[in-house]
Computed example of a mutant assay.
Amino acid sequence: MPHDIARLHHVGHVVSDIARAMTLYRRLGFHVPPPSVPALAPREGAAPEPFGAANTHADFSRSFVELVTPVKPGNTAGLPSEARIVPLQVPPEALPLVLSRIDAASNRLRGRLDRFEGLHIVMFSSPDIDGAANSLTALGVGHGGVNTVGRPVETPDGVRTEPVRYLEIDGTPEGRVGVVADLDPEFQHTRHLDHPNGAQELVEAVLCVPDGQLPLFRERYERFLGRQIPAEGPVTLLTGADLPDLLPGEDPPALPALVACTVAVRDIARVRALLAENGLPVRETTRGEPFVPSEAALGAALIFREA
């Protein structure tokens, strides 16, 4: 793969209660807008029903942290009253295929949530998603090809659809791993980037792997990225035995597992004060960076790094 895949596009925090997760992330100092949930008529002539997954983002200039929860068809229980229901327009002849694909994706989310609540998605960013797909194929990395989905975005001129082009890599037991086209600058003005904690960017995902399998996972991720993994981000690999050396007190819920992510902030002292004010427990990594432990953050430790 070309060396242009140098950073993260987003990580996905899969939660059982998205309202609770939004409250947590707001206490952590992030601006989190109301979640969106798609709605689709299960058959021609029927009323649209919520289904699939509800999600929202803490957006940064080139990346984001996603909060996502599976939604049972027609069931809005557990969704906050501020949730936005987004009806999808699908031609009748395409309805069965679309329903089956979204149902399969929702079932995968439930399976990940059954495994543990926490981070289950890590996606890297590329300015050339088609080139990335070709390079992965040439390197023998299996993937599902480039897909395009539309993300509804509220703009001053009404709701517009932002095209999102991505691919998913095959055979990743740690969760959903893939590559996404860089965020479209045309839609950047719609994102809320002014976070109370001064967050600037998502810079690292921490992946904990079984003892003895570190070389295997390192080789895989170096093929994904097309280069050696740098010392700091976009992904840090370590074994379960070594995890306490980076994150004291952390115990992985399963292996392999995405156990933490790191967000760069403008002023680390400001973050420490905000976390203390909001009553959140804080520990320090062995690098001297504050982090909120997974037991207080719905299964995923959150590390703060001064930009």
Rank of each mutant, 00 (worst) to 15 (best):
A199H: 10
V282F: 11
P185R: 07
P50I: 06
R176M: 07
P87F: 06
G131N: 08
R218L: 02
P87R: 03
V15I: 14
D194V: 15
L193C: 08
A46H: 09
T155R: 13
A231H: 09
S294I: 05
A138P: 03
T236H: 08
V292M: 10
E295Q: 14
R223T: 00
E284I: 12
T262W: 01
S106V: 04
F60G: 01
N134A: 15
Q89G: 15
R191K: 09
A104V: 12
A138R: 13
D251I: 14
R115K: 15
H189T: 07
P163D: 11
L139H: 00
G175W: 02
A231L: 12
I121S: 07
P253W: 08
G74P: 08
L275W: 15
C261T: 09
G175T: 05
A132E: 02
G175I: 14
P73W: 01
V122W: 00
E44L: 14
R84D: 01
L28K: 13
L243H: 06
G288K: 01
L109R: 11
L67A: 08
P2N: 13
R220L: 08
A94Y: 08
I85S: 02
R220E: 03
P73I: 11
L24K: 12
S126M: 03
S16Q: 12
A181N: 10
R43I: 11
P42S: 13
F30S: 04
L136E: 00
G140P: 00
A276E: 10
H120F: 12
F60E: 00
R20Y: 05
A257H: 11
F187K: 07
F60Q: 02
P96M: 10
Q213A: 02
A260H: 09
A205T: 10
G52E: 05
P152G: 10
A307H: 11
P173H: 03
G140N: 06
R283K: 13
L216S: 13
P42Y: 07
V90K: 07
T172C: 15
A257N: 05
P210R: 05
N55S: 12
R305V: 12
R43A: 15
E82S: 15
Y25K: 09
D242Y: 06
A41N: 07
I102V: 15
E219H: 00
E82R: 12
P91C: 03
A241C: 06
A46S: 12
A54T: 06
E277T: 11
